[in-house]
Nucleic acid binder design. Structure first.
Lengths: 334, 334
DNA sequence: CTGTTAGCGCTTTCAA
DNA sequence: TTGAAAGCGCTAACAG
């Protein structure tokens, strides 16, 4: 059922039907009602591809993200989807599983697929050719979580967050604090968090501390256990994300340590499930859904021409802190 | 850069360029190479909407699901996305947040948006007009997780799973077993699980037991605490999903009970994070990613004409069981 | 306020 | 094996 069916049903031209849907004010009251009725009667809905072909606007946005298996990104995509739905846009998500090459392919696929813009979730500006490509194509895009002077980003200041967190732990009495992180070479966010950690330790006048890097999530528990079994083990563990922190808590318990009595654990991200744990995970929270929502809104503003999508458009959001139950002052040393 | 640009660059007609991309065998070796080179040189990629308009095939699939905030659905969508990417299809997810009305809208939006088919995740055949609509439109669709004799479904037999689970608990020594579930009126899966629970209890010769319904996730902890504070409290809690089970464990601990010593807790779904908890969550596992993957593949087979999408196409998968650490024999009564 | 017309980029007969 | 031509459904000048 096409626009012509509606047109002839209503006894008007296709152009008029089109106007009723796109510029209702340009059509007389009477004609409009006539057309609307005909459309309803036939169950007509404008054909999206025809409209896209004609207007060069698909009202679809691509979202490139590593995985949905980390709740951070699920929460973020949820925010993106919500904002998109509100504005009548559709989203097309593509998962890269942290593979640069897949990110590349995703961007290629999405741009060929006529999306009007993209949200790149945790893309790494340092080594992503995908971003270059987008720029050279002139496709509007926004980076979520990343921070970079050359791109429009929506993020929180992780480094500062971790730095102040370290201060908080020190105030609580901790001295031997270790950092656990994923591969810093592939994640600029992990890097920033480590940097914040280093700054925090330095500012507290403490010596540079252990930074345990666990490349694969599967081996995290093992590595953390080893760290905890050592003598002079840390009294607090700062983890670069919540999933790692949760594994850290498990590793600690398996090593016979009580959290938080024997060891404090802190995460980063603020995924919802952390609140339901026992002990509730202490963590730096990011407004994940909000980051998604705002990334999308920023993108839409740009498509509206309301905003120029340069680095100056970047948004820096506030992080939060969930006190939780996984931290406590260290036991007095005997 | 359109097909004509490539055509004139290569000194052939647009039709030939089209053939090179769609039916390479119909073009001579020489011409093909010529065209391929020209296309590469110009960075040409066929315009998706034009192609869709012409062929009436968008290579896009809609996915309607309640939320990404429950890892079950995130895992499922991950599977869907993976299968789609493998076959070169794009997906357009829409979240309903369990609102029937939004489900309706989602289907309307997606069909108008020219998706070639849809995966409906946990749609409730009993009260979803959206499914009727899809059927009357003749749009292919597959239900994930649902079980219904009139629709093509990909699911596991929850009732049977819970029934056997109850048997396992009874064998372990439990007699006072309670079920905790979300609103059964809106979820046919919750209903099935409760039914399996009832059957299991009956089969064990135990009296019909408490079934605690917690409509809102926020209030789950409160309700569960109340249940656990009662005298003659249950020694085991069967929860209709993992999120509920995790909250249940927290509620138990807050009530001063040790899991599993004082109370056993079992979940349903097999979300990944359950494995990292302390104690590791005992649960009936569903192959969530696989359910997504297979739903999508079934849909694609139907679009290929390889399969007729009737109820006979439904797939029943095996559930699994993760022994975990959240269950133990009940303490001997003094 | 409404209709006519042209064309978005592509695929597919049909004819050569 | 290739090209010419028509048309998928829609929108936006433009003219009336």
């Amino acid at each position: 059922v096409s626009i012509h069916a509606v047109a002839s049903e209503a006894g008007v031209s296709a152009a008029t039907v089109s106007r009723v849907f796109n510029h209702p004010a340009k059509v007389s009251q009477a004609t409009r009602q006539l057309v609307e009725e005909a459309a309803r009667g036939l169950g007509y809905a404008p054909n999206a591809s025809a409209r896209t072909l004609r207007t060069q606007q698909s009202r679809m946005l691509g979202v490139v993200l590593p995985t949905l298996l980390n709740p951070v990104f699920a929460e973020c995509l949820d925010g993106i989807a919500q904002a998109a739905a509100e504005q009548g846009w559709a989203i097309v998500p593509v998962m890269t599983h942290y593979q640069l090459e897949q990110e590349q392919r995703a961007v290629e696929q999405l741009t060929a697929g006529n999306v009007d813009g993209l949200v790149m979730v945790v893309s790494n500006p340092a080594d992503s050719q995908a971003l270059q490509r987008l720029r050279s194509l002139g496709r509007p895009y926004v980076l979520a979580y990343s921070r970079h002077p050359d791109h429009p980003c929506v993020s929180v200041d992780s480094a500062q967050a971790v730095e102040s967190l370290v201060g908080w732990l020190v105030e609580m009495g901790h001295r031997r604090i270790a950092m656990v992180t994923g591969q810093t070479s592939v994640s600029d966010r992990a890097q920033q968090r480590c940097e914040g950690f280093a700054r925090g330790m330095q500012r507290a006048g403490l010596p540079p501390a252990t930074v345990l890097q666990v490349p694969f999530i599967e081996t995290a528990s093992v590595a953390i256990s080893a760290l905890l079994r050592g003598r002079e083990r840390p009294t607090a563990l700062v983890c670069s994300n919540d999933l790692l922190a949760i594994r850290g808590m498990r590793a600690a318990r398996l090593a016979g340590l009580d959290v938080p009595r024997d060891i404090s654990v802190v995460g980063f991200d603020g995924i919802a499930i952390g609140e339901d744990l026992m002990p509730m995970l202490t963590t730096i929270t990011q407004p994940n859904a909000e980051i998604g929502r705002l990334s999308l809104k920023l993108l839409l503003s740009a498509l509206d021409g309301k905003v120029e999508l340069g680095p100056r458009a970047s948004l820096s959001l506030h992080h939060g802190f969930r006190a939780g139950e996984s931290c406590a002052p260290p036991l007095p040393t005997r």
